[in-house]
Design a protein around this nucleic acid. Structure first.
Length: 594
RNA sequence: GGGGGUGUAGCUCAGUUUGGUUAGAGCGCUGGCCUGUCACGCCAGAGGCCGCGGGUUCAAGUCCCGUCACUCCCGCCA
C-alpha cells in the first residue's frame, strides 16, 4: 500500500464498500461523543466521515488531534444505515471505520476558522492565505482560474496562435502608468523596469514575422488598487495578429470569450457578433465608455427643449447659456412611484455633490413634479420625443457641462435602474466600444495629447493626420466591455514610421523624441513591418466575472493588499545595507516605519 | 494626495445614538460528561491596552481633538 493513501477523500463512494483504504488529509471537523468520535477528513477533492469507537487503540490520539492537523488513516469503508445518510456531502452514504491512525503534522490553534463559510477580515485572510485557500470557496476560485487559463490556451492554440514569453526585466517606458524599477548590479546606476504590458514586445514579434502571438502575460503597474484592479501585478491574455483589420481581431477573440464564458457559466451570454458602440454614442447614451448593458435605461440629450419659448426654468437655462447641456433618463412606468422614490434619488444626487436630480412625472397626459410648472407643453412634447418617454413614465434631468453631465447621468442611470430593480440578472452582456478619439486636450485645455494608445493607427492614416482637426480624428482603437467592466483595450497598430512620426508630432513630440523613447519599435518598423493589431483581455477580471466575485483579490492566489503589501511574505521589505552597497544605492528619505 | 466606512476576546460581532455597577454573545481554545453525529449536545473555565495618543468629565468602549491600520471610492491606471 502507498505510504500515504490508496484513495483521495473525494473519490470514495458506495462502490468502495468493504475495501480497506488508506486516506490522508486535514481534520475538517470533529464530533466527539465520548464513546464514539467522528472526524470529517478533507483533501482537495472532498470530505469523508471517519468513525472511531472508544475501544480503538487510537481513540485518544484522535480525540486529541486538533482541527486542521494532517493525518493518515487506514480503515474499512462501510455503507451507512439509511437513517444515518448525510445528503449534504457526496460521500454521505458511506463512512470509514478506523483501524490505524497516524498524526502526520499537528496543527496549532488556528488564527482563523477553516471549516464552514465565515466572513473574515481580509487582512487576516491574506496573512494566513494558506489557511484561507483551504476553504471551499477560495479553493474553488483558484481551481476555476486554472481551468479558465487552460481553456484559454487551448482555444488560442486551436486558432493557430503561438504562445511566446517576453522579458520581465525590460526598459522603463515613458508613457502610461508608473513603472516598477529594478536596479542593475552589472550596470550601476541603471534600472530595469517591469513591463506594464508586453505591448512593444508583441509588436516586435509581429515585426519578426510571427503571424499570431499570444501569452498569459504578467503585467506590472505601480498604481493604486481598486476592487477590480489588482495592486502591482495582474495577468492579461495578450494577443497580436499580423495582416488584420479591426473586424478580424473581433472575429478572432469573440469566439474565445464567448466559448470560455459558455464553458464556465450557466448564465446567458449575448451571442457574437457583440454589439459595437461608438465611443461618442456610449458617452451620450450610457455616460461612460464601459456601459453595463444589463441596464435597459438610456440617456438622451434634451438641452434644446429647455430653450423653447414658454419654458421659464431659469436654473437650467442660465447654465445652458454658459455652455451646459441637459441629459435625460426615462424611468419607465415610474409615474406611480411614491414621492419618497424621487426624494431618495434627489438626496442621493446631493450626496454625490450635485445640486439635485430634477424630474417630471408624465401622468394622465400631463406633466407633474416640481419643475413641470416651468415647462411649456411643446417642451414636454420635445422631451418625450427625445427621451422616448410616454405617459406613465418619469424623466430625470441632469444639467451640467458636457463631461460632468455625461458622467453623472451615467451614475444616475445605474442608480435609477438599481432602485427600480431593472438590472437583468444572471446574464453576461458583452459589447465593443469603437472609434475612440486619437487625441484629446490635456487638463489645461491648451495642448493636444494622445487620448489612449499612441501606437494606434489613426482612421484614415496619413491623409487624415495632415488634413483634419486632431480632435476630430478617430483611432482604430477599441475596448471590450462586459457588464460594465472593461476587460480590455486593443487597437490596430500604427506600423508606418512616417505616420508614427506625424502622429507624435501632433501630440508635441519631435521625431527625435519618438526615436529615443520608442527606438526599438521605430527601428524595427523601418525594415518592413506588417500591418497588425491585437487586444489583451484581463485574465483576473474574466475569472472575477465567471466566479461572480465582487473583488479581484478573490481570484488571485497571493494578492497584495490595497497598499500593495504582501502580508504573507512581508513585501516590500527593508533591504540589507550590503545589498544596497552592491547596487550603489542609498536610501535618501527613509520613512520611519517598520 | 483627497473623501466615506470600519477598528471591542484567537475569529465573527453586540454594546457607542442618550457617558454611570464587575464590558457581553456565538464560534474556537482548556477541563469534564456523552455510542450515531454531521454547524453533535450538555456542564465548567481561561481568554480584553475596547487600534494608539491626548483632552473634557466626579466618571469615557461611549463625547471632543489628533494619529495609525484595514477597506470602498475619487485622483491615477498611455
Amino acid at each position: 500500500m502507498h505510504l500515504y493513501r490508496s484513495h483521495t477523500c473525494g473519490e470514495l463512494s458506495s462502490k468502495n464498500v468493504g475495501e480497506e483504504v488508506k486516506l490522508s488529509g486535514w481534520i475538517d471537523r470533529k464530533r466527539d461523543h465520548g464513546g464514539l468520535l467522528f472526524i470529517d477528513l478533507r483533501d482537495q477533492y472532498g470530505i469523508i466521515q471517519i468513525v472511531i469507537d472508544s475501544d480503538s487503540d487510537f481513540f485518544h490520539s484522535c480525540e486529541a488531534a486538533r482541527l486542521e492537523s494532517v493525518v493518515t488513516i487506514i480503515g474499512k469503508v462501510f455503507l451507512r444505515d439509511k437513517e444515518l445518510i448525510n445528503i449534504k456531502i457526496p460521500s454521505g452514504d458511506i463512512e470509514v471505520k478506523i483501524d490505524k491512525f497516524i498524526l502526520e503534522s499537528p496543527s496549532d490553534i488556528l488564527p482563523m476558522p477553516v471549516s464552514g463559510n465565515h466572513d473574515l477580515g481580509e487582512e487576516l485572510r491574506l496573512k494566513n492565505r494558506f489557511l484561507d485557500m483551504r476553504r471551499t470557496i477560495v479553493k474553488n476560485n483558484m481551481l476555476l482560474r486554472s481551468r479558465i487559463i487552460s481553456s484559454i490556451r487551448k482555444r488560442m492554440i486551436e486558432q493557430g496562435f503561438y504562445e511566446f514569453q517576453t522579458p520581465i526585466l525590460t526598459a522603463s517606458s515613458p508613457e502610461g502608468a508608473r513603472d516598477f524599477l529594478v536596479p542593475s548590479r552589472l550596470n550601476l546606476g541603471k534600472f530595469y523596469a517591469l513591463p506594464q504590458a508586453p505591448q512593444q514586445f508583441k509588436q516586435l514579434i509581429m515585426a519578426s514575422g510571427f503571424d499570431k502571438y499570444f501569452q498569459i502575460a504578467p503585467c506590472f503597474r505601480d498604481e493604486d488598487a481598486r476592487a477590480d484592479r489588482s495592486p502591482g501585478e495582474f495577468y492579461q491574455l495578450d494577443m497580436e495578429m499580423a495582416f488584420v483589420t479591426q473586424e478580424d481581431v473581433f472575429e478572432t477573440i469573440e469566439p474565445v470569450l464567448y466559448g470560455l464564458f459558455k464553458e464556465f457559466s450557466n448564465w446567458k451570454i449575448n451571442t457574437p457578433p457583440f454589439p459595437k458602440i461608438k465611443y461618442k454614442d456610449s458617452i451620450l447614451k450610457y455616460g461612460t465608455d464601459k456601459p453595463d448593458l444589463r441596464n435597459p435605461l438610456e440617456i438622451s440629450d434634451v438641452t434644446k427643449a429647455f430653450l423653447l419659448e414658454g419654458v421659464t426654468f431659469k436654473v437650467f437655462r442660465d447654465q445652458i447659456n454658459k455652455g451646459a447641456v441637459v441629459r435625460a433618463i426615462t424611468a419607465p412606468s415610474a409615474a406611480n412611484k411614491p414621492r419618497s422614490f424621487f426624494d431618495k434619488l434627489n438626496s442621493w444626487a446631493q450626496e454625490q455633490g450635485q445640486p439635485g436630480l430634477g424630474y417630471i412625472i408624465l401622468s394622465d397626459n400631463e406633466a407633474k413634479g416640481p419643475i413641470a410648472k416651468f415647462m411649456s407643453s411643446n417642451a414636454i412634447e420635445k422631451i418625450k420625443v427625445n427621451s422616448l418617454a410616454k405617459d406613465g413614465d418619469a424623466v430625470f434631468f441632469i444639467c451640467n457641462s458636457e463631461s460632468e453631465a455625461s458622467s453623472f447621468a451615467g451614475k444616475s442611470r445605474m442608480r435609477i435602474a438599481q432602485e427600480m430593480d431593472l438590472i437583468e440578472q444572471e446574464v453576461f452582456k458583452f459589447c465593443w466600444i469603437v472609434d475612440f478619439p486619437m487625441y484629446e486636450l490635456d487638463e489645461s485645455g491648451n495642448s493636444i495629447i494622445f487620448s489612449h494608445n499612441p501606437f494606434s493607427m489613426p482612421q484614415g492614416g496619413m491623409e487624415v493626420l495632415e488634413s483634419k482637426d486632431p480632435l476630430e480624428i478617430l483611432a482604430w482603437q477599441y475596448d471590450i466591455v462586459c457588464n460594465g467592466i472593461e476587460l480590455s483595450s486593443g487597437a490596430i497598430r500604427n506600423h508606418r514610421t512616417d505616420i508614427m512620426e506625424k502622429a507624435f508630432n501632433i501630440a508635441g513630440y519631435s521625431s527625435n523624441d519618438l526615436r529615443t523613447r520608442f527606438g526599438a519599435l521605430y527601428n524595427a518598423f523601418k525594415y518592413g513591418a506588417p500591418p497588425h493589431g491585437g487586444i489583451a483581455p484581463g485574465i483576473d477580471r474574466i475569472v472575477m466575472l465567471l466566479a461572480n466575485e465582487p473583488n479581484i483579490r478573490e481570484v488571485i492566489m497571493f494578492p497584495m493588499n490595497q497598499q500593495a503589501q504582501d502580508l504573507l511574505m512581508n513585501a516590500p521589505s527593508n533591504i540589507d545595507e550590503n545589498q544596497l552597497k552592491e547596487l550603489s544605492l542609498k536610501i535618501n528619505k527613509a520613512k520611519d516605519k517598520k
